[in-house]
Simulated scan of single mutants.
Amino acid sequence: MNDTRDQITLPTSVAGSGTLDRLIETARDYAEQSASENTLKAYATDWAHFTRWCRLQGADPLPPSSEMIGLYLADLAAPGGKAPSQSASRPLSVSSIDRRLSGLAWNYTQRGFALDRKNRHIATVLAGIKRKHARPPVQKEAILRDDILAMAATLGFDLRGLRDRAILLLGYAGGLRRSEIVSLDVHKDDTPDSGGWIDILDEGALLTLNAKTGWREVEIGRGSSDLTCPVHALEQWLHFARIDFGPVFTRTSRDGKEALETRLSDKHVARLIKQTVLAAGIRSELPEKDRLALFSGHSLRAGLASSAEVDERYIQKHLGHASAEMTRRYQRRRDRFRVNLTKAAGL
Rank of each mutant, 00 (worst) to 15 (best):
W215F: 15
N210S: 12
P136F: 04
P137R: 08
L260Y: 07
D266F: 10
S102D: 07
Q236Y: 00
A305G: 01
L23G: 00
G223V: 06
R163C: 05
Q139R: 14
P63Q: 08
L264Q: 15
A134D: 15
L159A: 03
W215G: 00
A293N: 13
R100K: 11
L56F: 02
S284G: 07
R263S: 12
A77Q: 08
L209I: 15
L126Y: 06
I122Y: 01
V248Q: 10
R216W: 05
R332G: 00
D98F: 00
A127V: 00
D193Y: 05
E37H: 06
N340I: 01
G204R: 11
R111M: 14
I24C: 04
G195L: 11
A322S: 15
W47L: 11
K212D: 06
F113N: 09
G156F: 10
H268V: 13
S225I: 01
I129K: 02
R160N: 12
S179E: 15
R263Y: 11
S36K: 10
L10Q: 05
E180K: 04
T262P: 00
D164A: 04
F249D: 06
H239C: 05
N107C: 15
V269I: 13
L300C: 04
D199N: 08
S89D: 14
Q86R: 11
D290P: 00
E261I: 06
L264N: 14
Y43F: 11
A344K: 12
L126K: 08
